[in-house]
Design a protein around this nucleic acid. Sequence first.
DNA 1: ATGAAAGCGCTAACAA
DNA 2: TTGTTAGCGCTTTCAT
Lengths: 340, 340
Amino acid sequence: MTVKTRHKATIYDIAQLAGNSPSTVSYALNGTWKQRRIKPETVEKIKKIASENGYQVNLQARNLRKATSGLLGMILPEHDTRFFAELSQAFALNVRQREACPAIVLSGRGSEGQIESTRSLISYNVDAIVIAGATDPLPLSRICREAKVPHVFVDHASPDAPSVTTDSTKGAQELTRAMFARADKLRLDPKSQTYFLGGDAYLPSTRERALGFTKAASAAHVPILDDRIITCGYSSDSAERALTELYDARGALPSLLFVNSIICFEGVVRFLAQLPEREIERCVLGCFDYDPFVPLMRFPVLMMRQRADLLISEAFAKLDSGSSEVSLSYVAPDLIFDRA
Amino acid sequence: MTVKTRHKATIYDIAQLAGNSPSTVSYALNGTWKQRRIKPETVEKIKKIASENGYQVNLQARNLRKATSGLLGMILPEHDTRFFAELSQAFALNVRQREACPAIVLSGRGSEGQIESTRSLISYNVDAIVIAGATDPLPLSRICREAKVPHVFVDHASPDAPSVTTDSTKGAQELTRAMFARADKLRLDPKSQTYFLGGDAYLPSTRERALGFTKAASAAHVPILDDRIITCGYSSDSAERALTELYDARGALPSLLFVNSIICFEGVVRFLAQLPEREIERCVLGCFDYDPFVPLMRFPVLMMRQRADLLISEAFAKLDSGSSEVSLSYVAPDLIFDRA
DNA sequence: ATGAAAGCGCTAACAA
DNA sequence: TTGTTAGCGCTTTCAT
C-alpha cells in the first residue's frame, strides 16, 4: 500500500490512500479529531497509512496558516566561553520543555551582524526572541517592537525592553570584598596595589563591575584611582600584554587583581606561568567568570559564576508574562572559592 | 503615508500603498526585478514604502512556495564541552556564509531525544542536517533518508550515511607515542604501568582511541592488558573515583595515563590536586581533548585537540557534493604540547 | 461523522 | 514594463 513519490507525502496523498478527505486526515493527524467526532477506526487507519508512508507534517505550511512558527529564536554573540555555551544550553532546554524548536543564531560581536540576525529570525516568524550579549541593544529592540515580536534581553540589558542581567555591581562588590578578606588573612597590604583588568569601558557590564569593585575597595578604605582600572578589551593577548606592562612598571604583581572575564584570565595565567610561585602567592586573584579548570590550578582564584540557568528561566518568565514593558531583573552570581 | 495595521505588513499592503500589483512588489523586494525589467523608479518607490512600513518578508510563505526553508539544521547532544561549542560555532559560521539560518538543536545524549529532534527539523523543511555526536546513528539516517533530507554525520559516524570524523585511532596513536617519548626522556619505565581512562566501551570513538593507544603501546613493546583500559564513562566524578581506586590499589600513580575526554580529565585533576608534586612528576599525562586552561596548570599535559572547524567544513563539502552515498572522511587532530 | 473550500503570504508562469 | 492568477501544505469554517 506504500506509494512511491518523488516528493514528501502530504495530507492529500494520505487522503487519497485512505479514501478520506484531506480535512479528515488533517484532524486525524494533528490530534484535534476528538472534538470533530471522527470515528476512532478512521483515525487509526489514517495514522497507519501516514506512518507507512513516512508522512511528516510540514510545519511551514501549518504555521503559515496558524500565523505562528513554533520557533523560538536566540541571538548570541559567540560560543567561545562557557558562559555563552551555558546560556544556549539553558535556552535549548527551556525551548524543548515547551515543545518548540530553538533557532540559535551566533551573530558575532558586531552590531551589524546582530541586527541582521534579528531581522532574519523575524522573517521566520519566530514566536519570541531572547537576545544575549547584545553589543548595541537599542536598534534590536526597535526592530522587534516594530515587528511586534516578544523579546527579552539577557546579560546585556536594553534600556527600552524587558531585560534580565547578572547583578554585576553587587557581584563585583562581593567578589572584591572576598578578595580583601583574603588579602587580610594573608597579611597583604592592598593599599594602592589593587587593580581591575579587562573589559571595555563603554560596555555597561564592565562599568557595573568596575563600580562594584570601586565601592567595595572604598569600603575597605582603598581609594581606586582611574589608572587602577585597566579596560584592555576582551582578548587574552591584550590582557597578557597589559599585565606584563603593569608588572614591568611596578617591578612586582599587584597585591590584588580583579580580572573581568575568563578570556582575559587566560592571558593573566599565561603571564603568571613564568613567575615563581612565591610571587604569585603574594597576589590575591579574582575573576568575574568561571571555568572548571581554574579552581584546579596551582594557585587559588576567587571566581564569580554567572547563573546562566536562572538568567534564562527568568527571561522565559518575562516572555510568559506577556508584558513588553521595560523592566530589569537582576540575578545574583555565585561566589566560587573552595580553598582555605 | 505609513499605514497602521494590527498585523505585519504583507506585499499586498505595500502593493495597495504603492498602487502596484503584489507581483511587482514581490519582484521589487526580492531582488529578481532586473530580469523582469521593472522600472528602477518603481523599485525605488516600492522599497521606500516597504521600509517606511517596517515590511519584512515572511520566509515561511516564501519557502513554502519555493519548497525550501533556508534553514540548515544541526543536532548536537549538549554544549557542555569546548569541542561541542566549537562545532556549533563553526557550523553557525558556515551557515551564515551561505546566507542561510542555523537551527541548532541540543537534543541531549539520549537516542530518543535525538530522533525526536531530527523529526522536528525535518518538519521545518530544513535544507540539510548536520548530526554531531549521535548516540545511535542508524535510526537518524533512516529518518533523514526517508524524508529525502541531505544529511551528514560529524564526530560519531554512521555506517550508512556520509560521515566525517576525527581520526581517533591515529590521533590516539600519535598522542600515545608522544607520551612514551616523554616517559623515555624522564627515564620512567612505562612497562605495565600504562593506563587508559574514560569513555564507554561500546562507543566507536572510545574503541578507536583505545585501539590507537594499544597499537602505539605495543610498538613500544608495552603490551596492554584488558584491565589497563578503564572505560568508566564520561563523567568527571566517575573518572575521579576510578583513578582513586587505581591509586589505592597500586599505591602510586601509573607512569603513563591516557585520559579519554576533557570531562574525565576534570576528575583526574581533582584527584591529582591532593597529591604532592613530585608524585605527579612521575606520571606522564595525556588527554584526548582540549581546554585552554589545561596547558597552564602546574604539571605538563599532552593534549589532542580535535579540529571542529575542519570537521564542519568537510561536512559542508559533502553536502555540497550532493552525493548521499556512504562515505567516511577522517580529520587529523592536533597535538598540543608546549613544554619542554 | 465527514467533505468542500477559502485562505495564510509568497513566487512564477502566463497574459497583456 | 506590469497585472492576474494558481498553488505551496496546512487549518478551519461552513455545509451536509
